[in-house]
Each structure stands twice: as C-alpha cells, then as structure tokens.
Design a protein around this nucleic acid. Sequence first.
DNA 1: TATGAAATAATATAGTT
DNA 2: AACTATATTATTTCATA
Lengths: 153, 153
Amino acid sequence: MPLDEFDRKIVQSLQIDARMPVAQVAERTALSATPVSRRIKRLEDDGVIVGYQPILDARKLGFELDAYVLINLDAHSDDNISRFEQAIQDNPYVIACHAVTGDMDYLVHVIARDVEHLSQITLKSLLRIPGVRDVKSIIVLETIKETRAMPLD
Amino acid sequence: MPLDEFDRKIVQSLQIDARMPVAQVAERTALSATPVSRRIKRLEDDGVIVGYQPILDARKLGFELDAYVLINLDAHSDDNISRFEQAIQDNPYVIACHAVTGDMDYLVHVIARDVEHLSQITLKSLLRIPGVRDVKSIIVLETIKETRAMPLD
DNA sequence: TATGAAATAATATAGTT
DNA sequence: AACTATATTATTTCATA
C-alpha cells in the first residue's frame, strides 16, 4: 500500500501539472502509458489523490485581500464547537480553518474583496457566530510562497 | 476582460474537478464543447487559471503534522529579507509563507512527518536562517476546513 | 466576435501476451 | 508491464448568427 518509486514520480508529475497527459507522465516515470493510467486510478481509489483543482489567481477574481483570523470561543461545549464549525463550513470566504494550540482556539484563513469586505466578514460573520469570544486579525501584506505540493522523497 | 457568466460556470466546474471532461463542463455551462475548450484556454492565457494540481492526502504521504510558525526578523534590511525569503522558497516543508501585520513579521505554514521532524524544521532550518530572531509555533490540532475554491458569485 | 455541429486529432483505457 | 486495439475526449475546421 505504500507508494513505490513509480507512484512518487507519477504524483510529482501531477504536482507540476495535474492535467499533464498520461503519455508525458509515463515518459517522466520511465513507464508506458498503461501502467501510469492504472496507477493514477489506483492512487485515486486509495485516496492518496483526493481530487484535482485549478490554481486560480485570486486577484484576477476580485480577491485583493487575504487574512488569518485567530478566534477564541468563550465556552468549549460540543454545541458551541459544532455550531462554530458549521458556520465556518458555510462561509465561502473561509478557505481554511484549523483548531490550534496556543491561547487562541482556531486559526481561520479568509479571502476578501477589499478592506471593507474583510471587516464585514470578521465583524458581521465570524464575530457573530454564537460562542465566539474574540478575534484577532493578522492581515497578509505579501504572499511569499503558496503551494500545495508536497515533497515526496 | 472580466469573467462573464459562462466563464464563472466553467471555473466553478473545474473547482469541483479540474479534470472534468470538457463535454461535461459544457453541459453544466449550457454551452457546447467548442467554446468551453476555447474559454478554458483563454482563462489560462489570461492567467486567471494559473495551473492545475492534485489534492493529496497529506497523512497518506507520511505528513502527520501541520503547523503555523510565526517568525520575527531582528533587522529588516533588504539582505536579511531576501535571504529569509530564499530560504523559505528552498524549504520543501514550507507550503505557504506570508509577510503579515502584527508583532510578528511572517506567518509560515509547515508540514512535517512527526513531532521530531517539526522540531527539526523549526529549530534546525527556520531558526537558523540568518536574521531570524524568534519563532512561535502554532500547532494544528485538527483541520476543520481546507479548500482553495473561491466563491465566484 | 463567438457559437454549434461535424470531422479530425489527441489521449486514455482495456484486452492480450 | 508493454503492445496493440478500442473508446473516450479534445480540438480544429467550417458554417452561421
């Protein structure tokens, strides 16, 4: 069940371009197209590859801003937690949310059209989720690196 | 140059599955395959779609841990900054890095195989970059949400 | 300038060894 | 796993709005 050298080469190729033709992946992998096709299918079936997504230019889609919001809940009842997490799932401007260590409970990654929009998301959506005590915003000034590519060796 | 209703439908479809066949995207878009194929090409050429990537299961690839590391530089000379940013680019375990507001300079998202590996990345790689004053780690306990899909309406 | 339909080209998958 | 054959999918051409 662990990935062998071929699988790693295949995944690496797809990390360069998830729509790379199988023949080209095959070339990079020193394998013919057939086993590559079958291996990709297997990686999908095994849940190693969960899906494929386009990398979009956020700015070109009108999202000029980007922030991390640290959130504290005032009580950690199951109710509060599940209500909070549901609200996070439902908010399309939240692109990531983690429960974290430290003095804040959650770290939430938000995209916004502009400062006003960010303020609206923070104050009108996040802060108003029942159980939320306080929020601290860390605004992204510049993105130095952003990838989802994982090292495979 | 802004996206019209068709473009948005196309991008939305690709956000569901970046390898969805053009014919299927066409169906969802109420358009035939020809213009969909051309529009995808145009979105790529215009840099709206920057690339395609597989969504991988980090755990299945041996990355059990995930942390955000806040970093401060002790001097903000151009030299320090570019050296730091280069080190970040070169570190394969850093999947994201942002210059941010607040009392820390950078927020760095790191993946690691285990606690020891995380400690190694933090203490041996990040903290040793010249100019780095201190680091604060926020360890991810649970990922509630993680998407790169952007809302397009 | 952009579409749809048909034809062609490219690509992926299945069968066989 | 590779080779070959078949099936699926993408793209080009062309007529048209």
